[in-house]
Amino acid sequence: MSDPAGRGQHLRRALELYGTVLALAVLVVVFALTSDAFLRTANLLNIAKQISFLTILGVGFTLALAAAELDLSFANVCSLASVAVGGLLTVGWPIAGAVAVGLAIGAAFGLANGVLVTRLKVPSLIATLATASIANGIAFAITGGVAYVGRLAEPFLALARASVLGMPVLVLWTAGVVTLAQVFVATTRPGLHLVMTGEAEAAARLAGIRTRSMKVLALALSGLAAGLTAVLLTASLSSAGPTIAYDFLMRGIAAVLLGMTTIEPGRPNVPGTLVGALMIGVLTNGLTLAGAPYYVQDVMLGVIILGSVGLSASQLKRAAFGLGH
């Protein structure tokens, strides 16, 4: 006979690990039961496309947080990189060149964040807020506040608007980034060192891990994710403005914190971030299909952020206040 107490423990453990996934599944069922349109393939692909930017930015933030550092600059860096890509394409740069500049801007800001945090010992909360402000200022200096709007070259737009065998290419980009990031943190030496740095920096240092380099790497990858998102966002909207990614800051953080409630509870983790982004995407889409007014969506998002922050506060505090140092 099985032990009821043991079964209860297993169930509790399963709920701890997959409670948020279960809640997502319940949301899907509720929306599916009450809206004919929700489970249509076109709508599911629509949700998958819509969470792509949030997921890629969230994966970058996850890597930074895994190294116990905050990157609050990713949204503004993304906007700046977007403006650079849009501006360069508008003045006739080749697509590859403009894309390379966008990615380089993201990576450069990430590296700068890393240097500020590890060499100058500026807490990442402050360092990345400062670089966010700098990125914002440069974006406005480039544009004068006026977005680059117009029909950009089709091959560039195809980076975000094309489909491969019926699958939107944005979904493929997202799958690629999530897979690469998960393989990186779970199986490669630098990835494992990065996570160890975040979890116990002093112990990692004693074990011979170059913890400062790991933090620089984590923040640089977050910047690179912002650069990639900028390219895809510009292609998706065929426009680039100095605040184009502003709204992703809160939602990106929410997705990561929500992700920290599942799969590996209490830890920033890539699959969890995907679940968090999906939760936000499903909720937004489902409520729209349900005819819910906009303020209900805002309230729901706020409730979810509160809940996820409540559960994942320890890691966030460690990153925000440098408790890992």
Partner: peptide
Amino acid sequence: MRKVLGLAVAMAATLLAQDAGAQ
């Protein structure tokens, strides 16, 4: 968190029920 998500689902269900009645 589960309580929060439960509340979220309940709110969504209420809204959906309202929607179902609209013509």
